[in-house]
Computed example of a mutant assay.
Amino acid sequence: MPSSCVVCDHAMSRNKPGVNGLSCSNPAHYSCVGIIYSEVTKSSASRSVKWQCADCDRQPAGPRNLAILTIGNGIEGTLNKIFSQLSAIKKQQSECNTSLNYYSEKIDDFEKKLKVIDSLDNKMNLNTEMDSLKTDNFMLKN
């Protein structure tokens, strides 16, 4: 019984070959994980193909075809480096977003405290005016 691709869920076949995962041994079509089949068929490249699904790699949720691909030093090797750098950028972006959210909350807290201080200042000015009016009233009575 033929197995199914873990990405597209279609059957594996001679016409649509694939690669098995390193950890889980789940099969995936070359095209579904971004591997160019013609590059794999060249010389001994098929033996150097290594693929690991995102679930086994414990990457954040996302397309399963964002996987670890290692095929020599050609285009796929370059793509592997780019995917690695993109992953690092995503991590930095996530950390930046967390930091921005933290400071945004701090600014909101500061604004709330500033409003309280403004209202207290207004009350203090009212008290000063009230005292002045009391003095004026007392002087007029006398």
Rank of each mutant, 00 (worst) to 15 (best):
D9E: 13
D108L: 10
Y102S: 09
C32L: 12
D108P: 00
N26I: 10
C56H: 05
M139P: 00
A54Q: 09
C96L: 11
G18K: 01
S13G: 12
N101H: 09
K106R: 14
S46N: 07
M130R: 01
I35N: 08
D118A: 09
G18R: 07
V49R: 09
V19Q: 10
M1C: 03
L126M: 15
I35F: 09
G21M: 01
K50C: 08
A45D: 09
S104N: 15
N101L: 09
K81C: 03
G34I: 05
I107L: 15
A88S: 14
G34M: 10
L69Q: 03
E76C: 00
V6F: 11
A67D: 03
L22K: 09
S94W: 03
Q92D: 01
K134Q: 10
E95R: 15
K113P: 00
G72N: 11
Q85E: 06
S132T: 12
L140E: 10
G72Q: 12
C56W: 02
W51L: 08
I35G: 01
W51Q: 10
P27K: 14
D121P: 02
M139V: 15
C56P: 00
K91R: 11
H10T: 08
K91A: 13
Y37T: 03
F138K: 14
H10S: 11
S38W: 00
P60M: 01
N80S: 15
L100C: 13
Q93E: 12
M124D: 05
N101K: 06
A67H: 11
E105D: 15
C53V: 12
M12H: 05
I107G: 00
A67P: 00
P27A: 12
M124H: 06
K91F: 01
L120T: 04
L126V: 15
N20L: 05
G21Y: 04
K81M: 03
N127E: 08
S38K: 04
R58K: 14
C56S: 07
G34W: 02
R64V: 15
N15D: 13
P60T: 10
N65L: 00
S4C: 08
N125G: 03
A67W: 04
Q85W: 06
Y30W: 07
N127A: 12
S99C: 12
K106H: 07
L66W: 05
K141E: 13
S4L: 14
P27Y: 09
G77A: 08
G21A: 07
N26H: 14
V7N: 12
S13L: 00
A88W: 03
N142F: 06
L140P: 00
S84G: 07
I107T: 12
G34E: 04
M12K: 07
D118R: 09
A28E: 04
C32N: 04
T128Q: 13
Y102G: 01
F83V: 02
P63T: 06
N101M: 03
L114V: 10
K123W: 02
S31D: 03
A67N: 11
Y30M: 05
S44L: 12
T135F: 10
